[in-house]
Design a protein around this nucleic acid. Structure first.
Lengths: 237, 237
DNA sequence: AATGCTATGACAACGGAGTAACAAAAGATG
DNA sequence: CATCTTTTGTTACTCCGTTGTCATAGCATT
């Protein structure tokens, strides 16, 4: 579990309702973050050109520009993908899907608790940082995203693409366990294979990850899913 | 990115208009949820003492009690924050704000589409689940939802999945006692086992939770159900 | 055609949940 | 207080779904 003190995020807030914006600014500022505020899409773009941010809070309804459109433009402006949390009063499923299609990473329907907004901001930035760092390290296990290559205790693992993806999903979730359905969804989306292919792939992954070593890192939680365990914490099971 | 199928929510509906209540019950029931219905605030409080719910639908205007007041009382009654969706005919901003001040998580002004109500129920419960603290702590007992792992006094408990679920239900209800029927419903829904399997599982759970320790945390209330008790408060029973 | 990867299916091994039967305890009844 | 009834604790056992294992077939890419 990451436990370092968060240094505070640089956040760009794009919201045309003054009152709500003030509340958000007050709350998140006192939570240790640094906020820039744009009431219009145009101003947001201008700020975006001059600064870089860890996170964007984006109202779907803006006076001069659609939130979705702005989202796309921001993504083009910055090469690195900044996480976007969309705020919306619309709550029909269609709208949500359109928001995601435009590249939002999460959404929140108004009205919402400020505390929850803060929690999501942290979760989003953490998730983002995790996926940004090309090197993922869990004890003896090292995953190099830039090479699509994993190694344990220095020994490179000869993984098939799917095995590699499974390992990444489990490593990113660490120390949490990943349910079978979650894992399946992350691998295949809505259309998982008919057979229980996951079982076979876990087996193959284990051949590489655990077979050559004294203790296994990939543990099964019966009826639920799988989790990664560091060798030194074998005590529990 | 949780992807598990919604099992249907347990909802408490507090509404004095019979006709409207019937419509809501019909609609949400056929959407797969389970509803309990209270026409008065007093009855609502009584039900709340005996059961636990995933969501409360609360009319702002009740014959015997103000909705806001009831909302506050419900929040005090349950330690865990249950999401409250307020139904109101008043739609002035003041009233909305007062509703939120009392702890409602969302509101809907009458008249409303039943479909929208259903969507909001789902959204609210999703939001609530996501913002849930993965760590549940009751004295020496710690439950880590992210790992499906419980420990007492630092010692990890080797629980079967069902035993773990029982423990979570009891811990969430703490300090209230949980009736046998409620517990059974939360484990098996409408189709409990033919035999009284719960008895055996409670026994197994105790083997892990209480056997290795001086005093027991899982107490039986004869003829009613079970409850969790913290070691230091053994005095009462 | 050969190679590399994934899905499929068969089989065995395992583990958990439900069941039932008996013992013990708590209330109820007279 | 004695006895009966109901509820709960304890335990062994069976059944069935889950998981591990592995061989093979399908499907791209080259």
């Amino acid at each position: 579990m990451k436990n370092q003190t968060q240094p505070g995020l640089r956040i760009l807030l794009v919201e045309d309702q003054q009152a709500l914006a003030c509340n958000i600014i007050d709350y998140l500022t006192s939570a240790g973050h640094q906020l820039d505020y744009a009431a219009t899409g145009a101003l947001a773009l201008q700020l975006a050109k001059q600064h870089s941010y860890d996170l964007v809070l984006l109202d779907l309804m803006l006076p001069d520009m659609d939130g979705r459109q702005l989202c796309v433009q921001l993504r083009q402006l910055w090469l690195k993908a900044v996480p976007v949390l969309m705020l919306t009063a619309l709550d029909s499923l269609d709208d949500k899907l359109q928001g995601f299609a435009a590249g939002a990473d999460d959404y929140l329907t108004k009205p919402f608790e400020l505390a929850e907004l803060a929690v999501r901001c942290l979760a989003l930035s953490r998730r983002h940082l995790l996926s940004l760092d090309p090197l993922l390290q869990l004890g003896p296990l090292v995953i190099d995203r830039s090479q699509q290559q994993a190694s344990r205790a220095g020994k490179p693992l000869d993984l098939h693409p799917l095995g590699y993806r499974i390992l990444v999903v489990l490593a990113e979730a660490y120390p949490a366990l990943v349910s079978r359905s979650d894992l399946s969804y992350q691998l295949w989306g809505d259309e998982p294979p008919d057979s229980d292919a996951l079982r076979a792939h876990i087996y193959l992954l284990r051949q590489q990850l655990d077979k050559p070593f004294a203790d296994s890192m990939l543990h099964t939680v019966y009826g639920i899913g799988f989790k990664l365990v560091l060798p030194q914490e074998q005590a529990d099971a």
